[in-house]
């Protein structure tokens, strides 16, 4: 009598498929080599057709297989540029980090099934998600539109803000933070800013430079450490 070899499978072991281990897949670092896999050309340009966000200088051209931005037309709202440095605990700028943004359109509506407020218009030319690598000097940069206000908990209204994710070598988990505008309507009543100790609120507030860019440095560690959120 022979074994039914075709019916055999490898012996079960404690691994991804073990039902006793079922739960959130743990996060791992994005590492230093994400550039040819994640930030596409125009990923950091939510309003135009530039290559902003990608780093094609870090790979041979025949190995840049990512998409080019699919922007369909000009979105409503004030076009803005947001940018800043990212620094480690010694103040060294980090040229191998990735930043993502997520924010509402100019009217204050998210392009997401979960935001079902039909009384606030969607913008067919605006998604609100962007991704970009820091440049050789450790600067992140996006072109987008200034978002409108969206509701907060209870009857509150949040001040205009942009949600940011920071990923990089040495970061085992995505770091989530927010960008607010120094002249933002409702900053004083924002329900999330109100939870931040007053002396740390400035780490979330972008200031307009003379060249018009809204600037926000992100400090991963140490003095003036950016406020990151547990979501």
């Amino acid at each position: 009598m022979t074994t039914d070899l075709e019916a055999l499978n490898a012996a079960p072991r404690l691994d991804n498929q073990d039902p006793t281990l079922f739960g959130q897949t743990p996060s791992q670092t994005v590492g230093p080599f994400f550039h040819y896999g994640l930030p596409w050309k125009g990923g950091a340009d939510l309003v135009g057709r530039s290559d902003l966000g990608a780093r094609p200088d870090l790979m041979p051209p025949e190995h840049f297989l990512l998409a080019t931005s699919g922007v369909s037309g000009a979105p409503q709202g004030e076009v803005i540029e947001i940018a800043g440095g990212i620094y480690d605990g010694q103040g060294t700028p980090l040229n191998d980090v990735m930043v993502e943004i997520w924010h509402a359109n100019a009217a204050g509506r998210y392009a997401s099934d979960e935001d079902g407020r039909e009384e606030v218009p969607l913008d067919p030319h605006f998604v609100g998600f962007g991704r970009g690598a820091t440049d050789a000097n450790g600067i992140w940069r996006f072109r987008t539109i200034r978002p409108g206000r969206v509701p907060g908990p209870g009857n509150t209204l949040q001040a205009p803000h942009i949600a940011l994710s920071v990923l990089g070598r040495g970061l085992l988990k995505r770091l989530a933070t927010r960008l607010y505008f120094a002249d933002g309507e409702g900053n004083g009543d924002d329900p999330i800013l109100a939870l931040v100790p007053p002396e740390r609120r400035d780490t979330l507030i972008a200031r307009r430079r003379p060249d018009g860019v809204w600037w926000l440095d992100i400090v991963l560690q140490g003095e003036n450490e950016t406020v990151f959120f547990d979501l």
């Binding site: 480690d88 605990g89 010694q90 060294t92 980090l94 509402a104 998210y110 979960e114 935001d115 969206v150 509701p151 907060g152 908990p153 949040q158 990089g168 070598r169 040495g170 970061l171 085992l172 770091l175 989530a176 329900p191 999330i192 939870l195 931040v196 991963l220 560690q221 140490g222 450490e225 950016t226 406020v227 990151f228 959120f229 547990d230 979501l231």
Partner: peptide
Amino acid sequence: LRAPRLAPLAIPATL
């Protein structure tokens, strides 16, 4: 040198 030293701030989920 990259991990934040302060605990992340728990916030309520918003939109």
